[in-house]
Design a protein around this nucleic acid. Structure first.
Lengths: 233, 233
DNA sequence: CGGCACGTTGAAGGGCTTCAAGCTCTGTGG
DNA sequence: CCACAGAGCTTGAAGCCCTTCAACGTGCCG
């Protein structure tokens, strides 16, 4: 299918009237990236926002000490770089492709104009930002109050909901390349700790862990760990 | 000064045309709260958003295990509960007054209408949410990658910028009631750890710490701790 | 088949939490 | 005015969770 029609079905543009659509089509370009490519670099001044057409991209922040922290991952339909494109500020992180991906490139100016001319479009953006903010707050709470085990369990449960493929035997296969390092960056821990944790869960038949792939055998137990049940009263 | 005129000068409403102002004035009410009062409760369905007129309020999330995490604090001009008022979802946290405060109460419906009728107003909201999201991401990065010491130093530096009163001798007095517990909730740690850290800094003449109040004697050193300088190459 | 990225495992240790006890202010009511 | 209750703070001791460093295994792909 034509990428522009995919774009027009993105939640971001669902409320844009047909009249404005020509303008979007005229300004938007398509960009293809391969795994490991950076869509944009941390610190770079933002000219554009992106809407995922295909593939998977993650937003990473590099700290001064050389650690990487994964802030979010994006699937088709999601928008990234919105805030920065609107304000023109430097990107606070880098966007790294996790798979072969295609993104629609949208000039910041176009977005600004659309927002001013079409209030419902601005409302859509408010909605998207609201969701992101809620997620961010949830992660702050987790990082502040929960143990590493819990946080890892939580991210597996979340991934299961997003990309899980239910198998015949009831287990859930996570349809993403997911290294120990990736899980560490998602949860603010080290790959060694992730490895030990997964090994322990494999011993307890809660998951099957392979190279960059995980199957959840016992989703219920994983949720119990995520919710830290087991010592109530 | 009339609280409605204060409200009209909030950044939130700076782009609302005079024509809409009557409508805002008609729907808005004023609410006064005392320290410790909750403006709204976690879990409660959101009907309204609030704009700070005077005082200071913080947003707290209670975890299942009974720990509290402070998500943000609000000063006059700031808006809280925006997201939830727009969507009608339950508040994900409680808003607790830290001082005698006054807030303008705005029905969610009013905000929704304003956004649809006046795009520039929606743009303001996008700006505010953008700032909040940026802050949240920064905190996630800090919580993921930094030590407790660093994070405490950082929050003191931040508070100094927001509410610091420069003294004659160059030190900075933080003009907020700030208990060890508060600092702990801000940084995802315990009051004991905060106490020990502050005591150590007091020994090193970096701060003066009293009961619920802190003066920064050597802001430069505090920044160095926050940035974790001292072991580069 | 060699290199490299991914993963496992062990050992050591430190940062931080947890529990516990006691101290020091502040404010309040008799 | 003073005493006392309670909130805020300090300090110690114990220990665990997690990191860090290090060495080695493993499988994929050129």
């Amino acid at each position: 299918m034509d990428w522009k029609s995919v774009l027009s079905q993105s939640p971001l543009f669902s409320d844009v009237p047909p009249s404005a659509w020509e303008r979007i089509a005229a300004s938007a370009r398509l960009r293809s990236v391969q795994p490991g490519d950076l869509v944009f670099h941390q610190g770079e001044a933002a000219q554009c926002a992106y809407v995922m057409v295909a593939g998977r991209v993650r937003l990473v922040q590099h700290t001064a000490e050389g650690k990487d922290v994964t802030m979010a991952t994006f699937a088709p339909g999601d928008a990234l770089g919105l805030i920065m494109a609107l304000s023109g500020d430097p990107y606070p992180g880098s966007a790294e492709a996790l798979a072969d991906s295609q993104l629609a490139v949208l000039p910041g100016e176009l977005l600004r104009d659309l927002m001013h001319d079409h209030a419902p479009f601005a409302v859509r953006i408010v909605d998207m930002l609201s969701d992101r903010l809620r997620e961010a707050h949830q992660r702050i709470r987790e990082l502040s109050a929960e143990r590493v085990q819990q946080r890892i369990a939580r991210s597996l449960v979340r991934l299961a909901r997003r990309t899980g493929l239910k198998q015949a035997d009831g287990s859930i296969y996570l349809d993403v390349r997911l290294s120990r390092q990736d899980l560490a960056q998602l949860n603010g821990t080290t790959l060694e700790t992730v490895s030990r944790t997964l090994t322990a869960w494999e011993r307890d038949r809660i998951i099957d862990a392979g190279r960059e792939q995980i199957t959840i055998r016992d989703p219920h137990k994983l949720v119990l760990i995520a919710e830290d049940v087991g010592e109530e009263i």
